[in-house]
């Protein structure tokens, strides 16, 4: 734990140095180059964090394809103007309408938990900025996403189209009943605050499919609920903390 902690510390420090050097160079270099270096640094931070997760849940590490997808999506295009400079920091950012774009690490973790690859079909409830949908699209996934706040839905749809994420389709509306015409799905992400798991969403999950629900407030995800539909149609629920933390219950 200690040496690991150190390692991640050095990784982050190195990443920070890289970012700073490149940022300084960026003053004369081209902007895209700077942003892609920042993005790469963000991916390294995610990688460093993910190595620590596992004690409270099964997600041991963020896999290579997910990291690559995170490294390709231009996150700075998904944050409000003025906040581009912070787009690649590992933190949530406000996107207006009382909503946020999640911390990159949490997005990576949720993507990982979905366990989907090219050709899969995923339903997302709560589009927000469209960032999660874009990350999934980068993985070769066909994404259908529903957003309850109309202006957010419109902006996300336009943004995804503009950035060439043709496999991500966004519409405004009520996500409680899913998207019945397109069901079943290989994966479902419910980023909208849910007091319970909507039964219709469970029904629209393919056998073997997974549903991920982050629970918490706009700036903090307290736990992730992972629901897996077994081949026989029964479901299994797991609760994961997005952090390696052992509360020490054992008397032994």
């Amino acid at each position: 734990m200690n040496s690991r902690g150190w390692k991640s510390h050095w990784t982050r420090l190195a990443a920070a140095v890289v970012v700073m050097v490149v940022a300084a160079a960026g003053a004369v270099g081209d902007e895209d180059g700077v942003l892609s270096v920042r993005r790469a640094a963000m991916v390294r931070v995610i990688q460093a964090h993910s190595a620590l997760v596992g004690a409270m849940g099964p997600a041991a590490e963020i896999s290579e394809p997910v990291l690559r997808a995170m490294g390709r999506v231009p996150r700075h295009q998904f944050v409000p103007s003025g906040l581009e400079g912070m787009a690649y920091a590992d933190r949530p950012l406000p996107i207006g309408h009382g909503q946020t774009i999640s911390q990159p690490y949490i997005v990576a973790l949720m993507t990982e938990l979905l366990g989907v690859g090219p050709g899969a079909v995923v339903l997302e409830i709560g589009t927000g900025s469209g960032y999660q949908a874009a990350v999934l699209a980068e993985l070769g996934v066909k994404v259908y996403t529903i957003e309850i706040v109309p202006p957010l839905a419109e902006a996300a749809a336009a943004r995804l189209a503009r950035l060439g994420y043709g496999t991500a389709e966004a519409r405004p509306g009520d996500g409680y009943y899913g998207w019945p015409g397109l069901a079943p799905f290989d994966g479902i992400v419910v980023t909208a605050a849910a007091s319970h798991v909507p039964p219709s969403l469970v029904q629209q999950l393919k056998p073997g499919g997974r549903m991920v629900i982050p629970v918490g407030s706009p700036f903090s995800v307290q736990q992730l609920v992972l629901i897996t539909k077994n081949a026989d149609g029964t479901v299994k629920t797991e609760q994961l903390l997005p952090v390696r933390f052992v509360p020490l219950t054992g008397g032994h």
Partner: peptide
């Protein structure tokens, strides 16, 4: 101290 060390690694909410 443990919380602070894990702060940016997802521990903020707890």
């Amino acid at each position: 101290p443990e919380f602070l060390a894990l702060r940016s690694k997802g521990a903020m909410p707890i």
